[in-house]
């Protein structure tokens, strides 16, 4: 029975779509950055990605970046100058904003890569749980 359960779980994981995988990663990231917030307001520069976030518990996608708790950037290289938490999705955006953003998620060589920047996390008083500590980079 146990073997059957494990087999079924593995099958579900392996058959999960990239969207599901991405949603799972963002759920972990957002819960880590905002562990105590009842509602996390997320602003996206790519409306096509709304579906990923709308299905995450406690997350509300907002159209006005001023209301947002975090800006998730997919392809913008120009963002409002306010002191919002920024997270990059994509290596080029990550490289561009690495002095301001708290972290980034991108695919490289077929592998998902997650990076948090220690200095910027500190600037926003964010403390990550131990499970994500290994993804924190001291210096970029």
């Amino acid at each position: 029975m146990k073997k059957l359960l494990l087999f079924l779980m593995a099958a579900i994981f392996l058959s999960a779509s990239p969207v599901d995988k991405e949603r799972s990663i963002y759920r972990t990231i957002l819960n880590a950055i905002f562990p105590d917030k009842e509602v996390i307001h997320v602003w996206l520069d790519n409306p096509k990605k709304r579906a990923i976030f709308e299905k995450i518990k406690r997350v509300e996608v907002v159209n006005d970046h001023k209301r947002a708790d975090i800006l998730i950037l997919y392809n913008s290289f120009d963002v409002p100058a306010d002191n919002k938490i920024i997270f990059a999705d994509g290596y080029l955006v990550f490289e561009h904003f690495k002095n301001r953003l708290v972290g980034g998620f991108y695919w490289q060589k077929g592998r998902p890569n997650l990076v948090f920047i220690k200095k910027n996390l500190k600037d926003h008083n964010i403390s990550l749980p131990p499970t994500l500590k290994e993804y924190i980079e001291d210096d970029m």
């Binding site: 490289q108 060589k109 980079e137």
Partner: peptide, 15 residues
């Protein structure tokens, strides 16, 4: 030596 998805020196890669 990759032609795409090229990483830079000392950049982290999650493997």
């Amino acid at each position: 030596g990759s032609k795409e998805d090229k990483g830079s020196f000392n950049q982290k890669l999650d493997v």
